[in-house]
Amino acid sequence: MISVEDVSLHFGGIKAVDGTSFTIKQGSVTGLIGPNGAGKTTLFNVIAGVYAPTSGHIILNGEDVTGLKPHELFDKGLLRTFQIAHEFSSLTVRENLMMVPANQAGESLMSAWFRRDAVAAQDAAIRDKAAEVMDFLKLSHLANEQARNLSGGQKKLLELGRTMMVDAKVVLLDEVGAGVNRTLLKEIGDTILRLRDERGYTFCMIEHDMDFISRLCDPVIVMAEGRVLTQGTPDEVKANEDVIEAYLGTGLKNKLAAEPA
């Protein structure tokens, strides 16, 4: 599905991503973990086209997509969420969601005026979809609220909601679970599995919550200092000495180390 081939990205002297290679298999929920500053988000940004890599290639379904713009990748079915939630702050929650689908008829001035019926029909379909997504994420009561007024957790839900507005092929989730309550987190996990099983989505998710990872992800890729440290099933990874070392080495007390191997 996606191959990351020897990708590096250097910010001046900082080697944020430093010769990383791995593949995300079709229909998998691949976990991407690693200590803070390991380069996970930066790698997502490279895959999603925000940064062109200093070297290396990104292959999506056999096609070299290195250096394509984010919206070009979006058109190819690659969606992502942001670790720090992004929103269209002056638009309402509903409008935020409705903005996601591309090539809407109402976008062309000509059809906005001359094909009003077609525009209205499509608009209604997208509106229904948005209602469904808001319902699922328990955001319906905020439909007409400006997105700037949402809480941090609600903004994360809106992030996830965006990826549910279109039929994606691959979704990159950057800590969608952070700041979301346990009950909802479980439902989000269920949805991810359902989207994969029923609609054939492929996921790659960055997450720090090891329980969440263990439940959903296989395989898990561990990054540290811009490189892939190891990969395997959640249990294999948790038992790996290097992984424990990497987490402790950063001086952070991570629950990973505390958990029985």
């Binding site: 919206h71 979006f74 942001f82 992004h86 929103e87 269209f88 702050s89 809407q104």
Partner: peptide
Amino acid sequence: DNEDLALLSGI
């Protein structure tokens, strides 16, 4: 509002 996000939507 948010150029980064707009680039990742159907805009």
